[in-house]
Simulated assay, not measured.
Amino acid sequence: MKLQVGDKVPTFKAKTQSGENFKLLDYIGKPLVIYFYPKDNTPGCTLQACSFRDQYQDFQDLGAEVIGISGDSEESHDKFAKKHKLPFVLLSDFKKNIRNAFGVPSHLFGLLPGRVTYVINKEGIIVSIFNSINAASHIPTALKAIQKMK
């Protein structure tokens, strides 16, 4: 099932890069940017994560939280976050349960996990979905969607 604008975000639990338990329900009540990306330390994913990092304060100023999700391990996420000084949560989804719950498609004939960004309002409703392999385009698109909510 592929989620669409207007759908309620599925609730889930996962482990953060520091091994802590994460529950999406703890974040409902504030705007969220949840972005799925293929893999830590690849050129496009590093560009995307660092762009979210560089504009993280802009999201915070609007009351929004940024959450990155990929199939990498907690350890990989921890190294990636420390290396690039990422101030937001990265979640490990190695079994693809969260990716499947959102219906994130794959790219390149199913060989590459998809790159999709979801913007969710305070009520937990998806207000924007951006699906593009172009890593840099996700940040301004998500920021505009958050700004529209204000």
Score class of each variant (00 low, 15 high):
M1R: 13
K2R: 15
D7T: 02
K8V: 04
V9A: 09
V9C: 04
T11E: 15
F12E: 05
K13D: 10
K13C: 08
K13S: 15
A14T: 04
A14N: 05
A14F: 08
K15T: 07
G19K: 15
F22P: 00
K23I: 00
L24I: 00
L24R: 13
L25T: 15
D26E: 14
Y27Q: 10
I28Q: 01
K30H: 07
L32D: 00
V33K: 12
V33D: 06
Y35A: 03
Y35E: 01
F36R: 10
F36M: 02
K39D: 03
K39S: 08
K39Y: 08
D40Y: 04
D40H: 03
T42E: 03
P43T: 14
T46L: 08
T46H: 05
Q48T: 02
F52R: 01
F52I: 00
R53Q: 00
D54C: 05
D54P: 08
Q57F: 01
Q57R: 12
Q57L: 10
D58N: 11
D58K: 13
F59N: 02
Q60K: 15
Q60N: 10
L62S: 09
L62Y: 12
G63C: 09
A64L: 02
A64H: 01
V66K: 02
I67C: 07
I67S: 07
I67P: 06
G68F: 05
G71V: 10
G71C: 12
G71T: 09
D72V: 07
D72E: 06
S73F: 04
S73E: 02
S73V: 06
H77Q: 09
H77P: 01
D78N: 14
D78T: 05
D78F: 07
K79M: 07
F80S: 12
K82H: 12
K83E: 13
K83Q: 12
K85P: 00
K85E: 00
L86E: 04
L86D: 05
F88L: 03
V89D: 06
L90D: 03
L91F: 11
S92A: 11
S92H: 03
F94E: 05
K95Q: 15
K96T: 14
R99G: 01
N100V: 00
F102T: 04
G103H: 09
V104N: 04
P105K: 12
S106N: 14
F109A: 13
F109S: 14
G110P: 07
G110T: 13
L111C: 11
L112H: 06
P113T: 04
G114F: 05
G114V: 09
V116D: 10
V116P: 09
T117V: 13
T117L: 10
Y118Q: 09
Y118D: 07
V119E: 12
I120E: 09
I120M: 11
I120D: 08
N121M: 13
N121K: 14
K122S: 11
K122Q: 15
E123Q: 15
G124L: 10
G124A: 10
I126E: 03
I126L: 02
S128Q: 12
I129D: 02
F130H: 15
N131V: 09
S132W: 08
I133H: 11
N134P: 03
A135E: 00
A135W: 03
S137R: 15
S137G: 12
H138K: 13
I139S: 08
I139N: 13
P140Q: 09
T141R: 14
T141H: 15
A142L: 03
A142E: 04
K144S: 12
A145I: 11
I146N: 03
Q147H: 04
K148Y: 01
M149E: 04
M149P: 02
M149Y: 01
K150N: 15
